[in-house]
Design a protein around this nucleic acid. Structure first.
Lengths: 136, 136
DNA sequence: CCTTTTAGGAGTAATTTTATCCTATTTTAA
DNA sequence: TTAAAATAGGATAAAATTACTCCTAAAAGG
């Protein structure tokens, strides 16, 4: 019931990019600023790049920047880019594992809780993390 | 972000006990009815017993029964008996891991989501799982 | 063409998950 | 009193996942 450290790191990467003045940063910058092992941060940024959350620029003046407006990137987007589709119990995504019992009484609860969780995680977009004290 | 199979099994064990006519059942009965590996079910029931969710009776006419009314046992109780205190991100329980940054912008969100999740899981008690179609 | 940077594949160590096995100990009934 | 049936608890092990590292390639700028 816990997000992975990798997902947590990914959120910090996106947060860093959404807040840095220059609009872009290198793996080294991000890793150091956010206390993420450098090579691990590189892998994470690759995943974010494949998920179209981040854009990469190669070469000597390269680095990473957000692929779209922070208001259009949610915590859920980032988590799912790293971990794959969120599901709170094996039976929610893999329906098979629940069907040997004709009616599993608990199944609807997992579905409900998953929806609740995803809605909330999708609500928090990266424009909501500003310096303004008390905004959260 | 997923409950473990062990916790899922545990919920099924409690569900079984809350619904069986005799009010008690052996590990063998529960394991077979709920498709849980027998020795694993035994371990799970031991944990539930230590958490005072279930009571054990040794000896030839022994088995397990609920330690209290199903209305006073929630899904959250069972999950926490198996997995320990629920926390959605490492920083929520272990505050240290977040404090190197003076103000982590994301932390309050994890706290909020954790409360939301726990409230919902605590809402669902085992008296709510009856045969009545449409009750859920 | 040299340096800085990302891309991608492979590999690895540590931890957690998902169990199993074996030896008590308790209880009941013959 | 003894055998059978049940839980208790410790140790162990296989598999999967997590949390990384390493190495070589490719791109871009000066």
């Amino acid at each position: 019931m816990q997000i992975t450290r990798e997902a947590d790191y990914a959120i910090r990467c996106v947060l860093h990019l959404s807040r840095c003045k220059e609009g872009s940063a290198t793996v080294g910058d991000i890793a150091e600023a956010q206390s993420i092992p450098r090579t691990f941060a590189a892998k994470i940024l690759q995943k974010l790049s494949k998920a179209k959350i981040v854009k990469s620029v190669r070469g000597i003046k390269g680095g990473f920047r957000l692929a779209r407006d922070p208001a259009r990137i949610s915590i859920l987007d980032v988590i799912e880019a790293i971990q794959g589709p969120l599901n709170v119990n094996i039976c929610v995504l893999d329906r098979q594992s629940c069907e040997r019992q004709p009616t599993c009484m608990v199944h609807p609860i997992w579905v409900e809780i998953q929806i609740l969780l995803k809605e909330r995680l999708a609500y928090y977009t990266f424009d909501k993390f500003n310096d303004k004290k008390g905004s959260l």
